[in-house]
């Protein structure tokens, strides 16, 4: 499903952010991507949904070479990838339910369908009662759950989550992770970047560790 061959990412003047990364993630896998702050986790995820280009190396997502995608091809790649951004990227002037519906809107779904599916996702993350609030009126953890609802709303084949539990209390963390596990059980390939070691020890899954842009362990 996801393959990286000798992928490097350098910003001029700095040490490489990703340094010769080669890895393979199978369809339907659940993978932790871990490592200290600045290790390159977010950068690696960005390359997968084409928000950035590698300096060298090849990336295949769903059998497609991401580097060879035309500008017109990028949106169609992204429609199959749900992303929970580390900084959420919610629209401040749209209500919660509109934010969640955004991913469906660009697919051309009808208003009623968008609303119905968005509300269902919000119910799953326990925020149905906040559907008409604006994101800035929500707590950090609530905003995070909105971001997760948006990433899952169109049943993507790949889910990339960048610190999806960073702002949640332990009880909520478990219920949110359960959402990710459920999506994984339905067949979605899930990659979760986290530096929360507690999670890794509580949920034993394949863990790819990055440090200074290199894969230091994969088990």
């Amino acid at each position: 499903m996801i393959q990286l061959f000798h992928v490097s990412k350098c910003y001029p003047g700095d040490a490489p952010v990703l340094d010769d990364v080669t890895l393979r993630i199978e369809k339907g896998e659940f993978v932790w991507l871990t490592g200290p702050s600045g290790a390159g986790k977010s950068t690696l995820l960005k390359l997968l949904f084409c928000a950035d280009q590698p300096t060298s190396g090849q990336i295949l997502v769903g059998g497609r070479n991401v580097g060879r995608l035309t500008q017109a091809g990028v949106p169609f790649l992204r429609r199959n990838i749900g992303v929970v951004f580390q900084d959420f990227k919610l629209l401040e002037n749209r209500t919660v339910v509109e934010n969640v519906g955004y991913a469906l809107e660009v697919l051309g779904a009808s208003d009623s369908e968008i609303r119905e599916r968005a509300l269902r996702r919000l119910e799953q993350v326990g925020l149905k009662h906040k559907a008409t609030s604006l994101p800035l009126r929500l707590s950090g953890g609530e905003q995070q759950r909105v971001a997760i609802a948006r990433a899952l709303v169109n049943e993507p084949t790949i889910l990339l989550a960048d610190e999806p539990t960073g702002n949640l209390d332990p009880g909520l963390t478990d219920s949110i992770l359960q959402l990710l596990f459920d999506a994984n059980a339905r067949g979605t390939t899930v990659v979760v970047a986290t530096h929360d070691r507690g999670l890794l020890s509580r949920y034993h899954k394949r863990t790819i560790a990055l440090d200074k842009g290199k894969v230091t362990s994969d088990a």
Binding site: P75, R78, L107
Partner: peptide
Amino acid sequence: IEIMKLVGATD
């Protein structure tokens, strides 16, 4: 616009 594009909106 950035978010629209990130969730798969075409140009």
